[in-house]
Design a protein around this nucleic acid. Structure first.
Lengths: 246, 246
DNA sequence: TAAAGGATGTGGTCCAACCACATCAAGTAC
DNA sequence: GTACTTGATGTGGTTGGACCACATCCTTTA
């Protein structure tokens, strides 16, 4: 149900009714990935609400990574269903970090626990692992910091994907995205980027080797230390990040 | 950065500029939890945009669990900053489940891994654990299924809180919320609710006992089996849910 | 002094107008 | 018949105005 965060009053607001209608269309399969919603004006007429309310609902769905809007006519026009949970989760987390409600240290700790779990589960026959290896090659040859970091993001996401859980992959991406601006500041803090980059590369190789050796325990430990070490070196003291302590 | 999901065109849309402004206010501390945004009309004037664009931005922030809106005047009026990441994450996940992009089985598996991690980390001196115990008492005396399930939600959330990671707690809540409608159907599938409830209660007691005995490993195993068993009994075959396999 | 009415400021909803865009169809010229 | 130009069409994007309901506060009246 759509939370309107209104105290005392219970009735659904108009844009929420629209959201509800659209969600029902998705749940029932009437609307699917790649499919197109009715035009705003048409939908407003159908649902007997104003176009403004329809637009408000669509703004929400855009932020949730469920639709994208396109002007003009033709295949790119109108409101089309997409699948981008990472953007949605990332925006939500980022905003709650901005309000200081969710601590950055908790974001990092969560990322470590999820990624450790994922590498322990990575399937050696997954295409994502082949991609990870290719990305590692690119990183070896990469002198540019920003490009290196972009490849690093993709490397880690590929590792998450190899575990075959789409929710964990989406969350992994969102956690990293939520503290992207912090990451930039942290990189600037690093005393010796070249030494760090060399270390990161070596650690990536070790993680990948452990996965290929079917040694999930070692892979998990390595990835935890890898992430932990990066943030520590950059000056952020993450919470106790050993994912296997129990 | 706010994704507009528009292909080819790069400029920020007006409501996104408003979102950016508000996010900056939050990041800088000018706006904090419990604080009030300028009135819509005022903000529209300040930012030199139309009130409609301001409202669109606020709709997004509401869905992200960052603000709530109130009519009238007085302390409850206007747009106030709140902290409800669970609602935001839950809505996002729910929509992506609705599009079939995120499989329910992955949601359940993720919940198991997070909750196992949390109970292994639960601090025995956390007030949340005392609350969990109190909730358990209430569940013992509870004959009503819906009320039992509501208490069950709170019990599990209390366990998550005892680990002291706000991100994990928010995710835990959102994962459960995302498949709430499934849960209702699953409960209806159960062959013998009374037997199931009795089993759940017993398992809750064992989990709590393991936590108090500082036996995180056992607690994690128990909670995984507990959640796994529930969904299996109800007819959903979750993915391999052993959180400690590596 | 207490109650009623009006003012004020807030968000909620609707409407109309206009814009930019991306195609498609019809008309014209070669 | 083909290629180019122009206008039409349907799409989302933005603005501004009108009116409503609500929640208080202030002023007037009894």
């Amino acid at each position: 149900m759509w939370s309107n965060h209104i105290k005392y009053h219970w009735p659904m607001r108009t844009h929420q009714l629209v959201l509800q209608w659209i969600e029902n269309q998705l749940s029932s399969g009437e609307l699917a990935l790649g499919g197109r919603l009715p035009a705003e004006r048409t939908l407003a007429e159908q649902l007997q609400v104003s176009r403004t309310s329809v637009r408000e609902a669509i703004r929400v769905l855009e932020a949730m990574g469920v639709v994208r809007a396109g002007v003009g006519s033709g295949p790119e026009a109108g409101t089309v269903v997409i699948a981008d949970p990472t953007a949605a989760l990332g925006s939500a987390l980022r905003l709650h970090v901005a309000t200081s409600h969710l601590p950055v240290a908790d974001i990092v700790q969560t990322r470590i626990l999820l990624e450790s779990w994922a590498v322990a589960r990575a399937r050696t026959d997954s295409p994502a692992l082949a991609e990870a290896a290719a990305l590692l090659e690119k990183m070896e040859a990469c002198p540019d910091t920003d490009e290196f970091l972009a490849l690093d993001v993709r490397f880690h996401l590929a590792l998450a994907e190899a575990a075959g859980n789409a929710v964990v992959s989406a969350m992994m991406g969102s956690l990293r995205e939520a503290i992207q601006s912090y990451a930039g500041k942290l990189t600037a803090n690093l005393p010796d980027w070249d030494a760090t980059a060399a270390r990161l590369r070596a650690e990536h190789r070790e993680i990948l080797a452990a996965i290929h050796n079917h040694d999930g325990g070692t892979a998990a430990g390595l990835v935890a230390a890898h992430i932990d070490g990066y943030y520590k070196e950059a000056g952020l003291d993450p919470k106790d990040s050993d994912p296997t302590r129990h």
